[in-house]
Computed example of a mutant assay.
Amino acid sequence: MAGNTIHRTSSAPMKTILPPQELLDDLCSRFVLNVPQEDLESFERIFFLLEQAHWFYEDNSVEQNPALKSLSFKEFTSLMFNNCAALRPYINHIDDIYKDFTTYKFRVPVSGAIILDESYERCLLVKGWKIGASWSFPRGKKSKDEEDHTCAYREVLEETGFDISNLLNLDDYIEVVIGEQRVRLYIIAGVKEDTAFAPLTKKEISEISWHRLDEILPASDEVFSRGTNGLKLYMVAPFQTALKAWIAAHPPPPGQKTEASAKAMCVWKVKSSNLGGGASTADNQLQKAGSDAQDAADVRPGRSFRNFRFDVPSILQSIDAAFSANEN
Rank of each mutant, 00 (worst) to 15 (best):
T160K: 09
S273N: 09
Y90A: 02
E158L: 15
A321N: 06
G230I: 10
G112V: 06
E175S: 08
H211D: 00
F224V: 02
A293F: 12
T102V: 04
A293Y: 08
L125W: 02
Y90L: 10
V35D: 02
A219R: 13
F239A: 03
L71E: 04
A67L: 08
P89K: 04
S61N: 09
K192H: 08
Y57R: 01
F56R: 06
I315Q: 04
F48R: 12
R122Y: 05
H7I: 11
S61Q: 08
E121G: 10
V270Q: 10
A264F: 09
D298T: 08
A196C: 04
K244L: 08
D283V: 14
Q285W: 06
E118Q: 11
E193T: 04
A86R: 00
T195P: 12
V312Q: 04
M14D: 12
Y186A: 09
V32T: 12
G302M: 08
Y57N: 00
P252I: 05
Q64I: 01
S111L: 07
S220W: 07
S61T: 03
T195E: 10
P20H: 12
W55Q: 05
I187N: 00
A282R: 02
G179S: 11
G179Y: 07
A12G: 05
I115D: 07
L68W: 08
L24D: 09
E22L: 09
A262P: 01
G161D: 06
I46Y: 14
P238I: 02
E155M: 06
N65P: 00
A289F: 10
E259K: 09
I114S: 01
F137R: 03
G255S: 05
W129D: 08
T281Q: 06
A196T: 04
A260M: 10
N92M: 13
I164F: 14
R309F: 10
S70K: 14
L116E: 11
V126N: 00
E180V: 05
S165L: 06
D100H: 08
V156Q: 06
S225T: 11
K105V: 01
Y104G: 11
T201F: 02
S42E: 07
I115S: 02
Q256V: 13
E204Q: 12
D194W: 03
R107G: 15
C151Y: 03
G179F: 03
N229K: 14
D148K: 00
F323P: 00
N65E: 13
H250I: 14
F197D: 03
K127L: 03
I114T: 02
V177E: 15
Y153V: 07
L157E: 07
T103R: 03
K15C: 13
F305E: 05
S136W: 11
G3Q: 13
P199D: 05
D311L: 01
D194F: 02
F323D: 10
N169R: 09
P251M: 07
G128S: 05
G276K: 14
S42W: 08
S206W: 10
V312L: 09
Y98D: 01
